[in-house]
Computed example of a mutant assay.
Amino acid sequence: MYTEMFKSFSEQTEKSLAPYVKFNKVFTKNVEELTELQLAAVRAYSELGLSQLKAVSEVKDVQSFAAYNSQQLETLTKLSQQLIDDSNKFTAIAQSFKSEVEELVAENVKQVTPA
């Protein structure tokens, strides 16, 4: 008697908590992707900054200064492209999260709404 009652209670609890578990998995995946994106961005921007520091430390005369200045446009282009790529990746992650959450909500509304 008690076994059936506990089994029924366990099944009902599992069924009612299933949407929360699914949402937590989607949320965790989203946070993981965002963290990876941010770490990659920090790494890329740090490398760019360090390369600029190394390049400016190589300036010893007018010719090396002119060479350094001519590289700045290339560096700014690279930085701009990196920013665009990062924002596109961020947008893709946000869109993916939004669509997955919308899917979960639609699925749960379908389950709750009587036919």
Rank of each mutant, 00 (worst) to 15 (best):
E4I: 05
A18I: 03
F9E: 09
K54A: 12
A92N: 07
K78H: 08
E36I: 06
S99N: 11
V62M: 11
N30G: 09
K15M: 02
S51R: 15
A18Q: 01
T75K: 02
A55H: 01
E74V: 03
F6A: 08
N88E: 04
F27H: 12
M5W: 11
L73N: 06
T28M: 01
E14F: 08
Q38A: 10
E74Y: 01
Y45A: 09
Q63H: 10
M1E: 03
K89S: 08
L34W: 03
A40Y: 04
A44S: 14
L79R: 15
F23H: 11
E14C: 08
V21Q: 04
Q12P: 04
L73Q: 12
A106L: 12
S96W: 02
L37F: 00
Q95T: 12
S8F: 12
P19S: 01
S64Q: 07
Y68L: 00
T35Y: 12
L79V: 12
I93Q: 01
S16C: 04
D61L: 01
Q71T: 04
V109T: 14
V105N: 05
N24V: 13
E36A: 12
G49V: 03
E58H: 02
L83M: 04
E4N: 12
F97Q: 07
K89F: 00
Y68A: 01
T75Y: 00
N24G: 08
Q12V: 02
G49C: 06
A67H: 01
L17M: 12
L39D: 13
D61N: 09
T28P: 01
S96Y: 06
L53Q: 09
K98I: 06
S80V: 10
T77R: 15
T28V: 00
A44W: 03
E14P: 00
E103N: 15
A94R: 10
V21H: 09
V26H: 07
K22G: 01
K22Q: 07
V31H: 06
A55L: 09
T28C: 03
L50G: 04
T13L: 14
S96G: 14
E32I: 03
E103W: 00
N30V: 13
A115P: 15
A115F: 14
A44Q: 13
T75S: 00
Q71N: 06
F65G: 02
K78D: 08
Q12G: 01
S64G: 02
V112I: 15
E14A: 14
E33L: 15
K7N: 14
E102R: 14
S51W: 03
K60T: 05
A106E: 15
E103Q: 14
L76T: 05
S8V: 11
F90P: 01
D86S: 09
V31D: 02
K7H: 05
S64L: 00
E47Q: 15
F97L: 11
S64H: 02
E47K: 15
A18H: 09
F9P: 02
E74D: 06
A106C: 07
T3C: 05
S64N: 08
S51I: 03
K7W: 05
A115C: 13
T77K: 15
L50D: 11
S51D: 12
L79G: 07
V62I: 09
K60W: 00
N69P: 02
M1F: 08
L53E: 03
K60D: 04
